[in-house]
Amino acid sequence: MPYQILEKKELGTSGILFEMVIQTPLIAQKAYAGNFVLLRINETGERFPLTIADYDRNNGTITIVFQVVGKSTKLLSHQNIGDEILDVVGPLGNNIHIQKYEYPVVIIGGGVGIAPCYPQAKELKEVGNKVITIIGARNTGLLFWREKMRSVSDELIICTDDGTEGIKGVVTEPLKEIIVRQKISIVIAIGPLIMMKFVARTTDGSGDLPKVKTYVSLNTIMIDGTGMCGGCRFSTVDGDIYYACVDGPDVDGHMVDFDNLLNRSKRFIDQEKESLDQYNHQCKAIGKFQSEGS
């Protein structure tokens, strides 16, 4: 079944963020917020996960957003409209829990994590929740989907680390202000592990701030996606073990042992570098030049 790339767009100005619409007639019918797909670009490619950022049941397509960080994402960024991805499988992972909450929900997207926040905000908004969205990135060039997020939020707060857009500061700053000034039912945070760790710490009630139930979306290394290999496993602070692919990827942020997860995410760092170096070398050899984003 050919998974054709129907649209491709660069997001922001960093040169490393991309949005693609892929033809996946079956997956589009069953996709919900919280789900992800595993892609394999070609025969020698690895299987890697990307959250479904949007889905169109009528046209049979899904939208993915990714940041170039290594060989596979770089290779993906070199595919163009009309190209086919060899394998796309899904929808994997659990749907997020949707209900009309008593109080507003806060959704925080950090960096490329903004994309998976979109379907979650959309579905929560659809059942009548008040959605406060915070999107943040290192700088303005790495922000995207501002209008898209605004369209599914009651309030949109933008922040950048360097102050080039919106509030200067990390996403936990506006979060602290919000949870201090009003009661919040849940917080959803999707972004780099370190960001999710600090969001969870902010809402765990250990400091002076109130405790708020927090969900994070774990984007671990994955192979099979259905729970048979355990490669995506994470520990809880109590020492229990869960699989991100079948027990998540959206999980209770306060139970996650982020430090262990951070260590586990680095376990192939040498091979990842080797793979990327080799690919860059190949690209140079065939004359493919690209600007390295910051």
């Binding site: 060989k71 192979i223 355990g230 192939f268």
Partner: peptide, 24 residues
């Protein structure tokens, strides 16, 4: 790691031929 992960990487994803195959 589980044997499943180890063997799936090696056998299905041909990681024994890394870096020719991307899976490490």
């Amino acid at each position: 790691l589980t044997a499943n992960e180890f063997l799936t990487r090696s056998n299905l994803m041909k990681a024994y031929r890394f870096p020719e195959y991307d899976t490490p």
